[in-house]
């Protein structure tokens, strides 16, 4: 007798749980931690002029957003890395549509040091020797920095967790294809955390989005080769592609977006949305980048 009741109770519990799974309608955008600030700003600005549209923004990471897009739990996935082939395949298998890629802006990765660090310019080759597997630079004196100023000669490398889009992009752009990071770097889980740690640590060097600069840190100029003039990470230099470490910020949708989602995406790519990109320290896309 009581077993039947148990079954009924459990069934009711499951039904209630299943009912809670679906959230209300609206535009759902999920993904990259790098882009979560700008996505939130888009949502707020868009809601001001389009009060009928409700945009939900979730972070969690590029991989999370893409997985969510594949499962149909969001309309658009933000990604600071390209969608991988197998993810595109899975989207096609599960929802029967192609992934559509949109570039919503660019992010210039700045190389940060402590504000008291006298270093001004660093070359990509030197960065590769600091961060790369088997690299020979581990002391500030090797870069010509007087260790007395920093109270330590040791270069403390600050990096990102290995599943982040920023980590993968920096590896490709700075270390080159086929080279791994040197182990033992301090791996932070957020763009902001990298800058915060560098600001607290005189001997540190780190990379993060240009928009995350604070008064405690200094952005280095980057040169392609040692001895050349360095290029400062500015919107201007990133736009005309002089600055060497700039990457696109992607928005993926399952097929062409429709209805509300399409209107929102069009707005993001239009001057209003691109102004938000600029305001948050990222680089707007091509023709709107005035």
């Amino acid at each position: 007798m009581s077993h039947q009741y148990c079954a009924v109770l459990v069934a009711i519990g499951l039904l209630v749980a299943a009912g809670c799974g679906r959230s209300s309608e609206g535009i759902r955008m999920e993904g990259s931690d790098t882009m979560v600030n700008v996505a939130q700003a888009w949502a707020e600005k868009y809601h001001e002029t389009h009060p009928e549209a409700v945009v939900q923004v979730l972070g969690g990471g590029s991989g999370v957003g893409i997985a969510s897009l594949i499962d149909g739990n969001c309309d658009m996935a933000n990604a600071s890395r390209k969608m991988e082939d197998r993810e595109i395949q899975r989207l096609k298998a599960k929802r029967g549509v192609e992934a559509k890629e949109h570039v919503a802006g660019h992010d210039a990765l700045a190389v940060y040091v402590h504000k008291d660090n006298p270093l001004d310019t660093i070359s990509l080759e030197e960065l590769a020797e600091i961060y790369g597997e088997g690299g020979k630079i581990g002391k500030w004196s090797q870069l010509g920095v007087d260790s007395k100023v920093l109270a330590t000669d040791e270069i403390t490398r600050v990096s990102r967790q290995n599943s982040s889009g920023t980590y993968a992009y920096f590896r490709e752009a700075v270390l080159g294809k086929g080279r791994d990071y040197k182990l033992g770097s301090i791996d932070q889980s957020g763009s902001k955390d990298v800058v915060a740690l560098v600001a607290n640590t005189p001997g540190a060097i780190g990379y993060s989005g240009m928009g995350y600069a604070t008064p405690g840190v200094k952005m280095l100029r980057i040169s392609k080769h040692k001895g050349e003039a360095g290029i400062a990470p500015t919107i201007e230099n990133a736009k005309n592609e002089k600055y060497p470490i700039t990457r696109p910020l992607w928005i993926y949708s399952a097929g062409e977006p429709e209805g509300q989602a399409k209107a929102f995406l069009d707005w993001i790519l239009a001057p209003e949305g691109q102004k938000v990109v600029l305001d948050l320290g990222y680089v707007p896309v091509g023709e709107h980048a005035k």
Partner: peptide, 19 residues
């Protein structure tokens, strides 16, 4: 020396891995 633990590795990396 800075170190890393098993728990922290899961917490930091799981979010952005490909399922």
């Amino acid at each position: 020396d800075p170190i890393r633990t098993l728990t922290a590795t899961i917490a930091a990396e799981l979010g952005e891995t490909v399922e």
